[in-house]
């Protein structure tokens, strides 16, 4: 058995459905290199034991990920990651882009910006570069 690599954190007050939260968290973990090809996703039962969500929802989210070609269900074994979404740029604490962002964040803090200021700046710049209609 492979050790579980990730654990889902379902935020019930976020307004985002459990189904979407699972999909987003898997994608996120794959981008950050926490999930790599060959890794097994936690089984529905393991998710349920940890977070008390509907196992049907977990399986439905996995099916969506499978449809996207990110994971693959193997009968009796579980669901495995088949694709890599991580790149040099996003993986690890010492990735260059991350280092740059960390530097920027440090300066913002020194400059006396509170977290709302940082969020506002970040989303404004993000939306300039990635218009909303182009995102999925």
């Amino acid at each position: 058995m492979l050790a579980d690599v990730i654990e889902f954190r379902i935020d019930r007050r976020s307004g985002v459905s459990t189904y979407m939260q699972i999909i987003q968290q898997v994608r996120q973990a794959m981008r950050l290199g926490l999930l790599n090809p060959g890794d097994r996703l936690p089984s529905a039962r393991e998710v349920v034991e940890a977070t008390a969500v509907n196992p049907n929802t977990v399986l439905k989210a996995y099916r969506e990920l499978e449809r996207e070609g990110l994971v693959e269900a193997r009968r009796g074994l579980g669901t495995f990651v088949t694709k890599s979404l991580s790149s040099e740029a996003t993986t690890g604490d010492d990735a260059p882009l991350r280092q740059e962002l960390a530097g920027w964040m440090g300066r913002a803090q020194q400059g006396g910006l509170v977290v709302e200021d940082v969020d506002a700046l970040y989303s404004a710049v993000r939306d300039e570069h990635y218009p909303a209609e182009e995102r999925s």
Binding site: R45, A52, N54, P55, N56
Partner: peptide, 11 residues
């Protein structure tokens, strides 16, 4: 309790 019921569904 929800966890128990959901585990039952999963199992």
């Amino acid at each position: 309790t929800l966890r128990i019921i959901m585990t039952e569904v999963a199992d």
